[in-house]
């Protein structure tokens, strides 16, 4: 892995030197009290101690609403139009390791049988600069799902703070390599050793053990205990970096035209599984919550060999009913 030293001025120069017609820049910025990823931020906050943004950056790869095609009827002809796809490149600056890691996880499901061209194009057009994380609260559990604060999964380039003004820039992927060659050709190579702070991990759980327990406990009182408190909103799924369910609907603009559109959907909604007949196989919040945990820690692991979770803790921090998925998995794993 090639490593260079980069200072804050060089990062600022990089941002201003990227041609605005070809590149969008997504970086954390502070909006009042909370952090958020903001497009074309003038003042990105490169702060490894910042808490995670309130919503992950997945909407820049898997938009909350995306048109698949437009249709139009004239006389007896129906014509279809492809939506225009912005071929702009996206630089994500200072992505949390728990956010960056979501892209390879999502890629698996978006390329499993049908290849989602929109998602793939967006990923291919992006460069992710990850930033080592020094934040942790009660809701975080990235170490329990195989990640850590210096994990480079999903990043093309990774920054580790070296001192007040300097970062160690590690080139992680080929895409990252060509980006550095093109836009940062004059960096000094780093030969020293990085100081990596130990992560205090207060809640480790064994996700392999969790998987087996979930598979064996389709009926268990734990689901009812959580399900009765869960109010059935989709806050958890929509802020999650890895939740990827969507709904496809048609919307008309007038009697003769419209579009087919893909919108975020979530398994916590009662209507998610409701059949046209009126029958609903997941007819209680208990079953819906079980689905959420099972999909993340059992089904996805079964199919793709990894859990559908990066331990970012957003679902827990924002849950209006105070449900902590970490606590549930923790208690499962420690049974």
């Amino acid at each position: 892995m090639k490593e260079f030293i980069i200072n804050t001025d060089e990062i600022a120069n990089l941002i201003s030197s990227l041609p605005a017609d070809k590149w969008d820049i997504l970086a954390p910025a502070k909006d009042g009290k909370s952090f958020d990823y903001v497009l074309s931020s003038d003042k990105p906050i490169i702060n490894s101690e910042a808490p995670p943004s309130k919503i992950s950056f997945k909407e820049y790869f898997f938009p909350k609403s995306e048109t698949l095609f437009y249709y139009k009827r004239e006389a007896n002809e129906i014509s279809l139009t492809e939506p225009k796809f912005a071929e702009k490149k996206l630089l994500v600056l200072a992505a949390k390791p728990c956010d960056a890691a979501s892209l390879p996880i999502l890629s698996k499901v978006f390329n499993w049988d049908y290849k989602d061209e929109f998602f793939n194009k967006r990923v291919n057009n992006s460069v992710i600069i990850g930033l080592s994380c020094a934040y942790s609260d009660e809701s975080c559990f990235c170490t329990s799902v195989g990640l850590d604060r210096n994990n480079t999964k999903g990043s093309d380039i990774f920054l580790t703070p070296f001192n007040d003004k300097q970062y160690v820039l590690s080139v992680v992927s080929d895409k990252g390599d060509s980006f550095v060659k093109e836009f940062l050709p004059n960096l000094t190579e780093f030969t020293g050793t990085k100081e990596t702070k130990e992560f205090i991990d207060n809640k480790p759980f064994d996700y392999k053990k969790t998987k087996d327990w979930i598979a064996a406990n389709f009926e268990n009182k734990i689901w009812a205990e959580t399900g009765e408190v869960c109010i059935g909103c989709a806050q958890c799924a929509f802020v999650c970096p890895t939740c990827h369910c969507f709904d496809i609907v048609d919307e008309n603009c007038d009697l003769n035209c419209g579009r087919r559109i893909k919108n975020w959907d979530a398994c916590q909604f009662g209507v998610f599984t409701k059949h046209a007949s009126g029958h609903n196989p997941r007819n209680s919040q208990e079953k819906r919550y079980r689905q959420r945990v099972s999909h993340k820690f059992d089904y996805y692991y079964e199919k793709f060999g990894e859990v559908l979770c990066t331990g970012c803790g957003r679902c827990t921090r924002g849950c209006p009913a105070g449900i902590d998925i970490g606590e549930i998995v923790f208690s499962i794993s420690n049974q």
Binding site: T67, T81, E251, C253, C257, G258, R259, I261
Partner: peptide, 10 residues
């Protein structure tokens, strides 16, 4: 805001 959704339609 309605046309926003259909701006690309030919």
């Amino acid at each position: 805001i309605k046309e926003h959704d259909f701006q690309e339609i030919e």
